[in-house]
Computed example of a mutant assay.
Amino acid sequence: MKKTLFCIFAVMFVLSSFATPQESNIIFIDGKAWSLFTTEPISEDSALYSKMMASLPKDRTILTSNWNGYISFWSIKKDCLLLDSIQMRFYDKEKKQLRTECLDKSKMRKLFKGYTKNKGAMAKWFTGTLRMARGERIREVYLGSVYEYEILLTVEKGRVTKRNDYQNKVFDGYSFDHNDLLKNQDKDDLRTLLIPHLEKYPELLHAKHIKFSIKNVTMDASGHITNCSVTAKVDYGDNSEKEHQGIAEEMKQNIMAVHPWKIVYWNGQYVAYALENYIIPYKIDN
């Protein structure tokens, strides 16, 4: 076994990597518009949702970025979650462009009979947590985008019972992000910090590749990894992979020894930046 080559840092497996991002619904708080990123509140009541969908115009435009064919507009007034309007798009054949219309107020009153409050409908059917965001997108993570400003609202039967405001930040450090690797290519970067001692494992003498997977990463505020799990799958050139606990544990210790890792302060928690669910492939030059 002559040398171990750090071949490539594989990208993170992102859920719905090839899916078109869906348009967000909009909620107004204190006069400012926020993008609503949690489940659309109407859909939480299946009967109400089915009734509404059956009542929407059939000729509305359905886009890959909006499979429901509508955007709902909400507001928080006197701690009440109110549905203000439902907006749809229609294709104007003469002008060959899309136009926007709101669902007729009379249909709104009929659909949400029993929930009417002021000029909207109070979402008494909804209990849960609403996540909303605005500002710069500071990180795309496997659980969704992270934005500069976010609010989490706890709602019980349409009434807000708790509100948490967050200003999210990114703190610099080591990461597997492609741009960071390019930026640090002339420095003592991850390629030199994470090389395992394969000579300690004679059974790896004829191995061709090792694939390390990193999961369950927890961080502290200083960029230290407090815990993680690493698995190692070894390919001996026979198109099969076998797990190796010894080399996996060594890689885990190497990863945890690196400091500081790049982190995101996200809604009160410190999250690893471009580390969770990453795969590091090694090619072994025998």
Rank of each mutant, 00 (worst) to 15 (best):
K3D: 10
M12C: 08
S16W: 02
S24I: 02
F28E: 10
I29P: 01
L36Q: 01
E40G: 02
P41W: 03
D45S: 09
L48G: 00
S50P: 02
M52K: 01
P57C: 00
P57Y: 01
N66I: 14
Y70G: 12
D79T: 00
L81W: 07
E94D: 00
C102Y: 02
L103W: 03
D104T: 01
K107L: 14
T116H: 08
M122E: 12
A133F: 05
A133Y: 05
R134W: 02
R139F: 15
S145G: 09
S145N: 11
Y147P: 05
E148P: 06
L153G: 02
Y166S: 11
N179Y: 03
D186L: 04
D188G: 03
D188S: 10
L193T: 02
L194Y: 01
K200F: 00
P202R: 09
P202G: 12
H206I: 00
K208D: 13
H209S: 10
K211M: 08
S213I: 09
T218W: 06
S229F: 11
T231V: 06
A232G: 10
A232I: 10
D238F: 07
E243I: 14
M251E: 11
Q253D: 13
W261R: 01
W261M: 04
V264F: 06
Q269M: 15
Y270N: 04
A272P: 09
E276W: 02
E276M: 07
Y278A: 10
Y278M: 07
I279R: 12
I279W: 02
Y282T: 00
I284Q: 08
D285N: 09
N286M: 09
